[in-house]
């Protein structure tokens, strides 16, 4: 397995993702510069969090028109595994690899805190190590994480089991008080129809190491590793 972390000007979680993949999971990992088209033979791509191009125009909009993205789209369309975290999720919606869009948070504030998530789809290459309905804790840190999709789109997401994570209370209820940013149906993360592209606002790379006191995010990267090795 070889992993690639895309770097845009303004990415700031790229080294965290690199660290988790390379040093915690001990996977061969490279950085992919946004001006390149060559994916260096990777079989897993991470679009990291940050503020690509200073969030100019719309979050992720300018990044979605960069050279590397043409290759990422082609890779994803062939079934390659892509994980977009935070700004990476925004880039994935701007490229239309994932449906919907991410709007300014309902309360117009930047939110940085741990949130509870309920896992609603464990049948993706990213979530094999969770159990259905499991409640996990992963931090969010964003200004524009308010997931929007129209009703028809939402029904399709639910029908195709594309919703992977929802914001919830400590006991797993997905009511409005547990929704930090106003996302439709408390959505925190979704996959595409084929299930090979995951976008999520929470940051699994920030809770993927024992020393940090929380390993809930580790399982996403480990799931990908095992999946690519044919283990699960």
């Amino acid at each position: 397995m070889k992993a690639g972390v895309v770097v845009f000007p303004g990415s700031n979680c790229d080294h965290d993702c690199y660290h988790v993949l390379k040093h915690v999971l001990e996977v061969d990992t490279v950085f992919l510069w946004h001006k390149e088209r060559d994916l260096k033979g990777v079989d897993f791509i991470v679009l990291p969090g940050g503020f690509s191009y200073g969030d100019y125009l719309r979050c992720g909009a300018i990044a979605s028109h960069s050279e590397i993205i043409d290759s990422v789209v082609e890779f994803a369309e062939k079934g390659g595994l892509v994980l977009g975290i935070c700004n990476g999720f925004q880039v994935l919606t701007e490229t239309r690899l994932l449906p919907g869009a991410l709007l300014r948070n309902r309360d117009l504030k930047f939110i940085c805190k741990n949130v509870n998530l309920v896992v609603s789809n464990v049948n993706t290459p990213f979530t094999r190590f969770y159990t259905p309905g499991e409640i996990i804790k992963i931090p969010i840190a964003h200004m524009d994480g308010n997931y929007f999709i129209d009703e028809k789109g939402l029904n399709e997401l639910i029908e195709n089991e594309q919703v992977v994570f929802r914001y919830c209370s400590e006991t797993g209820e997905t009511f409005d008080d547990a929704n930090p940013n106003g996302s439709v149906d408390n959505i925190a993360g979704i996959v595409n129809k084929k299930g090979n592209v995951l976008g999520m606002m929470p940051h699994p790379e920030r809770c993927a190491e024992e020393i940090l006191g929380n390993m809930d995010g580790f399982h996403i990267f480990n799931s990908v590793k095992k999946y690519l090795k044919g283990g699960i």
Binding site: A61, T93, A101
Partner: peptide
């Protein structure tokens, strides 16, 4: 394609 996102 760029200036507006027709989804929103």
């Amino acid at each position: 394609k760029m200036l507006a996102n027709p989804i929103i």
